[in-house]
């Protein structure tokens, strides 16, 4: 459990860091050139690390399903949705909704146990936990004073 939480915290810290770097690129290149560059870099890094760790095993794709090839397009859908959401609502509200939606769907996926993940039964305690986190997000985002911060987060995606 602790290992999982630590890994998630590492992932989140790097997402925050990468968001800031991506903003800098975005300022000069626009959102699609940035998205292309970021995914290209991510692929190269993953592939090289994988090659180093797994060797030729990188090329043996057991039980490869056709839809796996298209899963990367989800990320493109993310960019389109968020760019449009921010354009219509402004960064503060759009990003607050995005973060809330992330959590709500996480709870949904856990309770349904889709995609062969271990099912986590839906309980009142879980709902309360998620509601408190969403409350925290809203206090963090909507209390003002970090307008610039929100713009940066919004531009990154």
């Amino acid at each position: 459990m602790i290992v999982g939480i630590i890994l998630a915290l590492i992932a989140g810290s790097l997402v925050g860091l990468q968001t800031i770097f991506n903003n800098k690129v975005n300022e000069h290149m626009g959102s699609w050139a940035t998205t292309t560059l970021v995914l290209g870099m991510g692929f190269l890094a993953s592939f090289l690390i994988g090659l180093f760790v797994e060797g030729a095993g990188m090329f043996t794709l057991h039980n490869m399903q056709p839809w796996y090839w298209f899963s990367g397009m989800i990320g493109v859908g993310v960019v389109i949705s968020i760019v449009k959401g921010v354009k219509q609502l402004g960064p503060t509200y759009a990003i607050s909704i995005v973060l809330t939606s992330q959590l709500a769907f996480a709870l949904l996926f856990d309770s349904l146990g889709w995609f062969g993940l271990e099912q986590v039964p839906f309980t009142f305690k879980q709902l309360l936990g998620v509601l408190i986190i969403v409350g925290g997000i809203l206090v963090f985002k909507l209390s003002g004073g970090t307008e610039k911060n929100q713009k940066q987060v919004a531009k990154a995606v």
Binding site: M1, I5, A11, A106, L107, I133
Partner: peptide, 14 residues
């Protein structure tokens, strides 16, 4: 740790 915990911890760190 499941999807909910992972997303929550990611958002906090982020």
């Amino acid at each position: 740790i499941g999807v909910t915990m992972t997303v929550s911890a990611v958002l906090i760190a982020q």
